Amino acid sequence: MAVVDPSTIFPLAGYDRLCFLKNVVDHPQITVGDYTYYDDFEDVANFQRRVRYLFDFTGDHLRIGKFCMLASGVEFIMNGANHLAQAVSAYPFAVFGGDWAGAMAGKTYPNKGDTTVGNDVWVGYRATIMPGVSIGHGAIIGACAVVTRDVPPYAIVGGNPARVIRMRFDADTVACLLALAWWDWPIEKITHFAPLLTGDVTAFLAAAEE
């Protein structure tokens, strides 16, 4: 069976601006699933540079599922960017030490938790994902969207702040797709169903449920 190896860095022959991302990322707080690709107009090494404010002391993680499609310029803002928005001043006095070192005694900076991208998610050109956001399986994030809140599975969102434009499928169909979780099938089965995965959802579900 001639299926591209997910450990391949550049799966398109002669083209080094699209990579299987898990083979490029080496940050311990970033995990990426098989076959997720990142396409960059300049250099695929840009991806990790665009995961902003990811510090070991914040303890948060970026988790991206399998079979995702990430366009050039995508950015993830992590919890290290957070300031004390509810305080008198948002200025991080304690960071600079000295007589300001104790300014954060008994306090912590806001932390919205891990950022999670499900499986089979398409994130468009220059979209920005804010800290702690969870993007559901099968969602589509429009170009230049700023995602500030969780995105339901199979929703299409866009704008700043991003809002649901429409759902890709009705609720029953979404439930069936989530139950099947095709991205977790053996690669041989995914390959067999690939022509249906790229076609009508009704035909796919009928065949998959046989």
Rank of each mutant, 00 (worst) to 15 (best):
M104N: 12
L54Q: 01
D56Q: 10
P131E: 02
G80C: 02
R63C: 09
A143P: 10
Y91F: 15
G73W: 04
F96N: 04
W122Y: 14
R49E: 09
I140R: 09
T115K: 06
V44H: 04
A81P: 03
V44G: 04
K112M: 00
A105Q: 14
P110Q: 00
L62G: 10
R49S: 13
I77Y: 08
D120T: 06
V117I: 12
G136F: 08
I141R: 09
Q48K: 13
A94L: 00
A143T: 13
D60N: 11
G113N: 09
I135Q: 04
G97M: 04
G65P: 12
V121T: 03
H83Q: 03
M104C: 05
L84K: 11
Y91T: 06
A87E: 13
D120F: 11
G98T: 07
T108F: 04
K107C: 06
W122G: 15
N119Y: 01
A105E: 14
R50E: 10
N46H: 14
G142L: 05
R52Q: 12
R50T: 03
I64S: 08
D114H: 15
G124I: 07
I140T: 14
T108N: 13
A45Y: 11
F57Q: 11
T108R: 14
G124W: 09
A105N: 14
C144L: 14
N79W: 02
A127Q: 04
Y53H: 15
F57R: 13
A101P: 07
M78L: 09
A105P: 02
T115I: 04
P131M: 08
A87T: 01
G59V: 06
G80I: 00
V44K: 04
D60H: 10
V51P: 12
V123T: 00
N119F: 01
T108D: 11
H61K: 14
G132Y: 03
S134F: 03
G132P: 09
M130L: 15
M78N: 05
V44Y: 01
